[in-house]
Design a protein around this nucleic acid. Structure first.
Lengths: 183, 183
DNA sequence: TATAACATGTAACTAGTTACATGATTGG
DNA sequence: CCAATCATGTAACTAGTTACATGTTATA
């Protein structure tokens, strides 16, 4: 639920919808993304429920900025959610697997070339997690020493991303070999 | 999109909404699930679009069975989709990571016990993929020798599930150690 | 005697996506 | 001069979930 992501960010400091989108793109986007439009409508909804409050910062030549801050009710809501344990394995929908599952009639070379192309993409993703994403976390931690503990957890989420893409590369290799052999 | 999953199954043989739900639970549920209610509404919608046709099998003591079959238009739709290459890395939403990302204020022991409990669940999942899921595929392949190629692909999807859960176990170990050390 | 399996469906709702609408400023 | 950045929002739509509604038969 996007609401909790927004509360999580606003718990660091007040931000606008635009800021929140950028913050997400730099960090949680790897495991939680949202469109700008959804962020705006969700913030509005949260304000109605008094989880956040906003004020308008007047600007010239561009729309006024609406800066949101978390309220005590919002902090409670966030904390309550953080303390709800995750007790089940999440099941994610995976289009690639769904397609592959039904692809026995598809041309062998078409399948193979697709999987090979995906392998390149996933290798790049591994690279991205171990360089860019890591740097973003390190830099933020350097500039905000009070976020030391946070940065440890941020890095744990980064590591899952990295390991996840590595696993994909290994699976693609295995799957390509399998298809080459049996198809 | 559920539509393609349903077309995929109906491309093997005619089935009812109830059958489809069961088939999914036994196979694609690991990467594509749907509620019974969604299956029924989607089938109705697909019939309107002439991707499937149905007839009613009269039964006593229980609702008549509505048996769906794929049409030529449905086969085209399915094949067209199968031939659309997957060219991007899918981004899945992950509640666990979102929660962890914002959990710096949460009690250390609470976090650790949660992650340890999750590790048990993920280990069980690895087990499930390598035994139950594997048996289902093997048995189906044994009973339907014409589905040999299919079963190779089914097993590839099973392997990703297995490897994915193994990766999670490794990450949980690493993350638990990290929190024990730095928190 | 209770519960799982068989079998279908609708209504209301939630979450998220796509498309539309506007317009100045900054950097290459 | 063109694209990206800054900045906000609404409307329509799609996909999926939850809750409701019904009722028999087989099994433990």
């Amino acid at each position: 639920m996007l609401k909790f992501a927004l509360l999580g960010f606003l718990n660091y400091k007040p931000m606008t919808g635009y800021d929140l989108k950028q913050a997400m793109e730099k960090s949680t986007a790897n495991f939680w993304q949202a469109k700008q439009s959804q962020i705006y409508t969700t913030l509005k909804d949260m304000e109605k429920k008094e989880l956040v409050v906003s004020y308008s910062e007047i600007q010239e030549g561009r729309p006024d900025k609406r800066v949101y801050s978390i309220t005590d009710a919002g902090k409670n809501d966030l904390e309550k959610w953080l303390l709800e344990p995750v007790t089940a394995v999440e099941r994610h929908k995976n289009t690639l697997l769904l397609k592959l599952f039904f692809s026995s009639g598809v041309d062998r070379e078409f399948l193979l070339s697709q999987l090979r192309q995906l392998m390149v993409l996933y290798q790049r993703e591994v690279e991205r997690f171990s360089t860019e994403t890591r740097s973003i976390i390190e830099e933020t931690a350097r500039n905000n020493p009070e976020l030391r503990l946070d940065s440890i957890l941020w890095d744990a989420t980064r590591r899952l991303g990295e390991m996840h893409k590595e696993m994909y590369v290994a699976w693609l290799e295995e799957t390509i070999a399998m298809i080459e052999k049996h198809f």
